[in-house]
Amino acid sequence: MTVTIPTELPAWQRHLKTQGMSAIAVTAALLSILAVWQIAVLVGNRVPSPVQTVERLVSEAAIGELWHNLAISMNRFVLGLVLALVVGAVIGVLMGMSKLADLAFSDLNAAALAIPAVIWALLTTMWFGFGWLTPVVTVFLSGLPFVIVNIAKATRAVPADLVLMARSFGVPRGHILRHIVAPAVAGSTVAAVRFAIMSAWNGLLLAEWFGSTSGVGWRSRYWYDANQLDGFFAWVLVFILLLVIADLVLLGPIERYATRWRSA
């Protein structure tokens, strides 16, 4: 009697299998969304159909509004998010490694977490008026507390014995941060970016809605004020698609790369 011992699939086959499952999941999600949307069209009174929404989006692209406003919003978003990531990472590591810094920032950051993005959008509009600074600061303030709390939590989880051993052997503080702390917080950094992107993107939309004359949020309000729901839905669709694409194309691969050592 011959016994066949199962062997592990080669890496390329595992990769293809994972990619296939991801494609199936994305397809199923899209079909579910389209089905629910079509049901809403049939049941609702003024809900535009997917075809009407896409046609409006195509017309927006034809007159140059789509790419122009999208580029403006992305510039604002990237600037605010990068600032939030840099400042949040510094404060988070300080809170995780220093009890004094933790006491100084923990309550303040908890309060910032409780403030919704719409409040930041309204406050920055009153502070800075209509201009590029309003959405950038809103993105920064909306994403910052999520970065801080995730980085601080991951830094605290770094084995203290490992850090103490490195210090006892005279390892410089910069090397400890680079070779011990940074790999340990890599996965949580991606999680922090995910939460920050969701909150900051909402903040950007609201800031442009209330305090801007350009961008995705402003164009959404333009069609809302014009009582044209197909135009409003078209820009909401752009808003959602950008989040989904960023998560699938950018954040997913980065997370797998940052946490590859866990499955090594």
Rank of each mutant, 00 (worst) to 15 (best):
T155V: 06
V163W: 12
A184F: 03
S188L: 01
S212I: 08
R178W: 03
A191C: 15
P145T: 07
T189E: 13
A186Q: 11
S199R: 04
H179W: 09
K153I: 05
R173C: 00
G170N: 07
N150C: 00
M198V: 12
L144G: 09
R173T: 10
A186H: 09
A207L: 08
A207S: 14
S188R: 09
P145N: 05
F210R: 09
A200K: 01
I151W: 05
T155K: 00
P145C: 02
P159C: 05
L177T: 07
R194D: 13
V185A: 02
A186C: 05
F169D: 15
I148A: 00
A192N: 14
L164M: 13
S199D: 10
L177D: 02
A166G: 04
V163C: 07
I151Q: 09
A160I: 12
P159V: 04
E208S: 04
I148F: 00
I197R: 00
P145K: 03
G203A: 02
F146L: 10
A182S: 14
G170Q: 09
P145L: 00
V193Q: 05
V185I: 15
L164H: 12
H175K: 13
W209M: 15
A154Q: 12
P145E: 04
S168N: 15
H175V: 11
A182K: 12
A196V: 08
G170V: 13
V149N: 02
G203T: 14
A191D: 15
L177C: 00
G170W: 05
M165Y: 04
A192R: 08
L162V: 11
V171M: 02
D161T: 14
V185Y: 06
A186T: 09
G211W: 09
L144M: 01
K153E: 08
A191F: 14
P159F: 05
V193W: 04
G203F: 02
A157C: 04
A157R: 13
A191Y: 15
I176K: 01
S212D: 14
V163R: 14
A166I: 13
A196G: 05
R156N: 03
R194L: 11
S199H: 06
L205K: 08
P183K: 01
P172E: 15
V181F: 12
V181P: 08
I151D: 12
V190P: 14
